[in-house]
Structures are given as C-alpha cells and as structure tokens.
C-alpha cells in the first residue's frame, strides 16, 4: 500500500511541478528581460519610399543574417503605383505600441520590450499562428522547422551592441534610415517631428512605434 501512495504522491508532485513550470516560465522570462537592462532608447527605422528602388538587397541581407531558409525573409516587397510609375513598399514588423499579435498570443510568447521592440520567445510559442492572423501588416512568417512564429526583431543583438539592422546596412540607395528617436538631434527624430516620416496605416490602430515611412506622392 505505501508504494501506491508514494507513487500517487510522486505523480501528483510531477503534475504540480509541470503546472508551476508552465505558469512560472512566462513570469520568469518577463523578469529576465527587465533585469537585463532598462532600456530608455527609442529606436526608429524610417523607410524612404522615394529612394527605394525595390532591389531587394534588404530582403536578402535579412534572410542571410537571420539564417532564414531560401525564399523566406522578414521583409516583404509590395509593388504600388501603376505600370508606368511603380514604387515599392517594403514591409516588416512595425513594432507596434499596441500590438494585436501580443494581445491574441495565448502564451506570452509575443511581448513588447520597454524600448518598443516586439519580440517572440520561441521557448514559449506553441505555433498556433493566431498572431499571424492578427497582424494587419502580415509581418509574421512561420518557422516550419521549429514550429514557431517568427518576424523582424530589429536585429536587436546588433543594435544593442551599437550596430545596425542588416536591412539598413544593405540598402544601396540609403532608403533606410536608422537611429534613436529619443535623441532630438538625430535625423530620424527630425524626420518624425517634421511629419515627413509617418507610421504606415495608422487607421489599423496598432500604433507602429519603430517603423516609419516617407511615402511617395502619387
């Protein structure tokens, strides 16, 4: 009899530990991310569509830096305008201040850092694809190999180390301008303040907080 009881208790404890782990891991992750540093930076990435030639160097650079399989990138090219006068809209995660992807995520996998960068914790993601449905910019792709959602993360480790996102480095005509919007002297801050650089489709209500666009006049 004691054997059965102890086995039962063992099973009970294991189950309890599982539940604690399940509930605790999201909290732990939150702890970890706020402990690493309290970033006051506010990054901005402005895409000047009047300069963009649609060459796709950013798409390829992103694919390579993030080791994405052939044909997949965090950046998508949309052709706008008309046959005679086409222009290109490069779309990636806009790092929304009110991100629906994080609201609908059932697991805490998608979250927004204090500096506005929206990230996915692949350890928590179950691969339900709800976030892909909820992102009005269709900025998310699915990593079939790991079974998790994936998207632009602003090349955060490079940026925190003082570097640039791969797309910005790769852009030949200089259509991508990266900087800190919290520094009023910076080019990005001035472009945003002057109203030249604007969020894309603000009517979606997601408040893009890092990506801004200078849009071609049609």
């Amino acid at each position: 009899m004691p054997a059965t009881i102890s086995r039962r208790r063992f099973l009970g404890l294991t189950a309890a530990a599982g539940v604690v782990a399940a509930l605790g891991l999201p909290l732990l992750r939150k702890e970890a991310s706020s402990a690493e540093e309290r970033p006051k930076a506010r990054y901005a990435l402005i895409i000047d569509t009047t300069k963009c030639t649609g060459c796709g160097a950013c798409i390829e650079a992103c694919r390579q830096r993030n080791k994405l399989p052939e044909g997949l990138s965090y950046i998508r090219r949309i052709v706008k305008g008309n046959e005679r006068n086409p222009w290109f809209l490069m779309v990636q995660c806009q790092h929304c201040a009110n991100p629906p992807c994080a609201t609908v995520c059932p697991t805490h996998a998608t979250y927004r850092r204090e500096d506005g960068v929206v990230l996915i914790d692949p350890r928590l993601c179950v691969g339900c694809k709800y976030c892909m449905q909820a992102c009005p910019y269709q900025a998310r792709i699915f990593d079939e190999k790991r079974g998790v959602a994936d998207k632009c993360w602003l090349c955060l480790p490079w940026v925190l180390g003082g570097g640039l996102p791969a797309c910005v480095e790769a852009c030949i005509p200089g259509a991508r301008i990266f900087g800190r919007a919290d520094d009023p002297q910076s080019e990005v801050a001035q472009l945003i303040a002057s109203g030249r650089a604007k969020p894309l489709h603000p009517e979606f209500g997601t408040e893009p907080s890092i990506l801004f666009y200078i849009i071609q006049e049609e």
Binding site: L25, C105, P106, T107, H108, C125, V126
Partner: peptide, 14 residues
Amino acid sequence: WRILYMYTHFSSVM
C-alpha cells in the same frame, strides 16, 4: 507540455 502555456494569457481569446 507547451500547451499548458496556452492557459496563461487572458487577453487572448484562444
């Protein structure tokens, strides 16, 4: 076991 995480985020309809 990751499915257990799906019980935790109450803003999500899922």
